[in-house]
């Protein structure tokens, strides 16, 4: 009888612990930055859905140190232009067969937006997508040689393609801001 009671108590403890950990996970999930997985054709639809806006797309990956270094600047920039209705979008380019890298990227995103009001779906100025395609195919279809790269769209048209494709014409944060300001001025 005593043995049965101890077993019962242990089971209750384990169940409570499990429930507590599930609650903590759920809270984490609610606080997590949304990261939506898309195919290339879905990405096309995403861009089409923002045709009325200035859209700044930051291509990045956890294997790209320059991308990680640039990302906080993109967050700051997105805050600066939130009231101007400039939409920032990050496009994660990891190998879809490497879920641990995508999880790591998601952790990185969560850290970037910790205590930021930009987080969450309503009033979001920075959306986050992860490309669910073969990496080489993604680079080919997006016509990317390398990342970081920033593409800026206005009224559905690609107006600025900022890349490191030419060693003598590397882009900076200043180039991104100048492009946004030029588009804001012309609209």
């Amino acid at each position: 009888m005593k043995k049965l009671l101890i077993t019962g108590l242990l089971a209750l403890c384990l169940l409570t612990q499990n429930l507590l950990s599930q609650t903590a996970w759920a809270e984490d999930a609610n606080d997590s930055v949304p990261l939506k997985t898309v195919t290339l054709s879905e990405w096309e639809a995403v861009l089409k859905s923002h045709q009325g806006e200035i859209v700044v797309v930051d291509f990045w990956a956890t294997w790209c140190i320059s991308c990680l270094e640039r990302f906080p600047h993109m967050v700051t920039m997105s805050e600066r232009y939130q009231s101007k209705k400039v939409r920032f979008i990050s496009m994660l380019l990891e190998d879809p067969e490497e879920p641990e890298a995508i999880a790591l990227a998601h952790q990185f995103l969560n850290k970037q937006f910790l205590n930021k009001q930009l987080k969450g779906k309503n009033g979001l100025a920075f959306d986050h997508y992860s490309m669910n395609e073969n990496l080489m195919k993604s680079f080919e279809v997006l016509d990317l040689l390398g990342i970081p790269a920033v593409f800026i769209y206005n009224k559905g048209q690609l107006t600025h393609r900022l890349t490191g494709d030419n060693p003598n014409k590397q882009f900076t944060d200043k180039d991104i801001e100048e492009a946004i300001l030029a588009l804001l001025k012309s609209s």
């Binding site: 279809v141 997006l142 016509d143 990317l144 040689l145 593409f151 030419n166 003598n168």
Partner: peptide
């Protein structure tokens, strides 16, 4: 064909020396 259409929408043509190289 679909890939070509995607390319037209998502990217802009490059003025490169080589197919994938701006200089060489």
């Amino acid at each position: 064909m679909k890939t070509l259409l995607l390319l037209a929408l998502l990217a802009a043509p490059n003025a490169f020396a080589g197919q994938y190289n701006a200089i060489m």
